[in-house]
């Protein structure tokens, strides 16, 4: 492929339902994201930003249009092929943390490595390293119930970056946190973007959080309304 983009959406639409009940969530989205970008996706609920994130995350496929991920057309892949794509190239951070409860932080972080069939000898140190990177050394054996919200989200980030993904997709990662914790989380994400070159696409409602990104994309009624670069840093 000729393009240099990591992620390329061309004329992507997504329609839910059929006939008169049909609801068009995306109405022709064009979006290119290059390696190493930090993109904040904003928009009101129902603007199509979540649908777009699901497509970017290879959890869903476009109704029409093309999604190239590293030059591979995702729309033509099977469910299992998309799962393998997620396993090897993507990391996910959710608003609700989505950690396994009653399971230690270490085991939570190990989970993606288990699906990659890593041996215990390689996955334990790797998971510990990831926890250290989010500043949770010494908390390896605590379960989510014993951790604060900010700590839980940091475990979730460790779980997302432990596989050294190309893209980290974060769906309102600070939605359940107070502003101090939010800033901690955003600083972590910024550092992973800056130091490890992980491409980050993050959905958020809060302009304060979007300010951490290098680029902000606004969705409105299934289309991209505004796409600009921050000049703050």
């Amino acid at each position: 492929m000729m393009n240099t983009s990591l992620i390329e959406l061309r004329g992507v639409t997504k329609t839910y339902g059929t006939g008169t009940a049909a609801m068009q969530a995306l109405r022709g989205v064009d979006l290119c994201i290059a390696q190493g970008e930090f993109v904040a996706v904003m928009g009101a609920s129902g603007s199509g930003k979540s649908t777009c994130m699901n497509i970017l995350g290879c959890l869903d496929t476009p109704t029409t249009g093309i999604y190239h991920f590293q030059g591979v057309e995702v729309g033509t892949l099977t469910r299992n092929q998309r799962a393998l794509l997620r396993r090897h190239y993507l990391g996910f951070v959710f608003q609700g943390f989505n950690l396994l409860n009653r399971t230690s932080a270490l085991e939570n972080v190990e989970l993606p490595l288990i699906y990659r069939h890593f041996s215990p000898a390689t996955r334990h140190p790797q998971a510990r390293r990831a926890l250290a990177q989010v500043g949770l050394t010494g908390w390896e054996h605590h379960t989510p119930g014993e951790l604060s919200g900010g700590q839980q989200q940091r475990v979730a980030i460790a779980r997302a970056i432990v596989t050294q993904p190309i893209v980290l997709l974060a769906d309102e990662p600070t939605g359940n946190l107070d502003s101090a914790r939010s800033i901690e989380v955003m600083e972590l994400l910024t550092s992973f973007n800056r130091d490890q070159g992980i491409t980050i696409v993050m959905v958020t409602h809060e302009p304060d959080m979007a300010a951490f990104a290098k680029r902000v994309v606004h969705f409105r009624d299934g289309l991209i309304e505004k796409d600009h670069h921050n000049h703050v840093g």
Partner: peptide
């Protein structure tokens, strides 16, 4: 939700 998380992380259907 946990199953959703596993699938998002990259668990295959058969896994």
């Amino acid at each position: 939700r946990e199953i959703g998380t596993r699938l998002a992380i990259g668990a295959l259907e058969r896994e």
